[in-house]
Amino acid sequence: MIQYILFALATGLLFHGIHRKLIARIQGRPGPPVWQEILHTLKFSFKQTWIPDTASEVHFVGVVLISIAIWILALGVVIYEGSVLLLFAIYLLHKIVEHGMGLSSGSPYAKFGAIRSVISAASELPLFVTILLIYYFTGSLMLSDIIQWQASNGPLIIPAFPAAVAMYLIILSKMHFGPFSIIEGKEIVSGNRTEHFGVWRAGLEAGFAIKTYVLLNAFVLIFLGSFSLPVLVLIMAVILMTLSFVCAYCPLLGPYDTVTVQSLVTGVLLAYIIILEVVL
């Protein structure tokens, strides 16, 4: 398991670096080297670390540890092909981490980020109907069963294309510099991450890197099927690049616009389910 965690961490950080590089190149900037996020995390690990005087200390540190713990748990779910429901629960619990990060420091900028994280919880709606649609087609929410179903019926992305789009949107809403990244908008400094520096920031970067790896891996497993590791990573990288293009071209949406987009996607998915259930 340790080697999986280290691999996911390194790959996730590399993906973040590729993401930054691609966005920069699309926007006509040279951008940082692709391994910059790995260097960043190493650098933060050895920098001076402090807890702000105004912070709730236990809470300030606790959310960092919880962030790492829940995404390692999610990685375990993906590796051992556990329940998708559990995976999505962890995705929603990550919202608590974002919220806690913002509230714990006492900084007004971080608090704005935290309040926005509550608003961005609208992404739970497309997630909810995605789960329903996966269950509708495969009759199971266990990853092992979903992979088996695809082995005999073909990729799930074909019959459940709207669900794949919704999950793509869910991953997009968690990408840095994306149209839904309202919690870390520059108008509120770095949002909920404003006060987390040094080892705490390194811990958060590590947790977020594993998160990116897990979400992309889960997308491939759920909608395309099982592949050998090199092919899996290649497909994940291609999906990441498409996400980077979206992030590079789409401006940051307003908080309530993000809710509107996510609610509309939910509406379309619900309509699709009703058509499947009633009409077909």
Binding site: S56, V58, H59, K95, I96, H99, G100, L103, S104, G106, K111, A114, I115, V118, I119, A121, A122, E124, L125, V259, Q262, S263
Partner: peptide, 25 residues
């Protein structure tokens, strides 16, 4: 939960992070 949570987002402005977080949890 969304989309009925607008008032809830506003109440998280109150002080007391460890307690306010419980609302969201």
């Amino acid at each position: 939960m969304a989309p009925f949570y607008v008032a809830k987002a506003e109440i998280t402005r109150a002080q007391g992070a460890p307690y306010i977080l419980m609302i969201h949890v």
